[in-house]
């Protein structure tokens, strides 16, 4: 649909603009302001220029948590996207069974994040949690509070449990939108199951999948509450992701200048990667 050029449309956008500007610009400017000062107390602030940025960029602790963050987000996408597609393909197409599946699958999405952490904190315990107990019974030595690898896998498993439903529901609605005629044509051509998936379903899922990847990337990159409740970032700092490092720095140590500089770099990384995805979306839309 061609859009009409009309600048009066700004009046319709104005409320959103003002509201979001109030919630976004003022705090963002505050962060920028902090990032160039060294603050000792009220009225005792000194301009330090780009000093904090230099320090943050060379900080070993931050680099470590950045690498952990990328590894985590990468693993999240690699597992959740294929699994989500698989689940969506298995879900019943319609009727009461379809609605029921939809609601049951959506349950993890509706649980507050700290409760998600609490659920897994208990569920994965070796003594009173079903999962930890079962794994130990199977003869595998498992203890997520003590072992780095176990802690990692538990956080990852929790995230897969929590967020794969979102990918599944997105793909499910994408699949519902494919006209029946496509499948009939494939049947006439005696196309194999794989061919139907590869040449009919997957291309049609493209735009939904980009949204899924975008949302999953953004949210896994900002993950805070769930690992904080589950492992507290430990053992050591093996499951301390970016948000937690930042929050500890800003609120725990009250190291405002450094935290602010770090915030800005953090935001820029998310923005840059999301911009790449966003360009991909608009590009895909144009192709249609």
């Amino acid at each position: 649909m061609d859009k009409i050029p009309d600048n009066r449309a700004w009046w319709l956008v104005l409320p959103v603009f003002l509201l979001v500007a109030f919630s976004a610009l003022v705090p963002l400017m505050t962060v920028v302001n902090y990032s160039v000062q060294d603050i000792f107390g009220p009225g005792q602030a000194y301009y330090v220029g780009t000093e904090w940025f230099k320090e943050v960029l060379t900080d070993q602790r931050l680099q470590d948590s950045l690498i952990r963050q990328f590894a985590f987000s990468g693993a999240v996408l690699l597992i959740q996207i294929p699994l989500g597609i698989g689940v969506a393909l298995m879900m019943p197409k319609s009727g009461i069974k379809g609605s029921l599946c939809l609601i049951l699958v959506a349950i993890p999405l509706l649980i507050p994040w700290n409760v998600v952490g609490t659920i897994w904190q208990i569920f994965a315990r070796g003594d009173i949690g079903l999962f930890g107990w079962a794994v130990n019974q199977a003869g595998i030595d498992y203890n997520y509070t003590g072992d780095t690898v176990d802690a990692w896998l538990t956080v990852l498993l929790m995230d897969v449990w929590h967020w794969t439903p979102l990918v599944a529901l997105l793909c499910y609605s994408g699949l519902r939108a494919i006209p029946e005629a496509f499948y009939q044509a494939a049947e006439i051509d005696r196309a194999s199951k794989w061919a139907v998936f590869r040449y009919i379903q997957l291309p049609r899922l493209k735009s939904v999948l980009i949204i899924a990847v975008l949302l999953r990337f953004m949210d896994s990159f900002m993950i805070y509450i769930e690992p904080f409740v589950l492992t507290g970032g430990g053992p050591g700092s093996s499951t301390t992701f970016l948000s937690q490092t930042l929050t500890t720095m800003a609120i725990g140590q009250f190291d405002l200048g450094r935290a602010a500089a770090f915030s800005l770099i953090y935001f820029l990384i998310v923005l840059l990667i999301s911009w790449l995805f966003f360009t991909a979306i608009t590009h895909a839309d144009k192709e249609k």
Partner: peptide
Amino acid sequence: MAPPAVFLL
């Protein structure tokens, strides 16, 4: 996309 941790304070 803004990480909420950035905006807390």
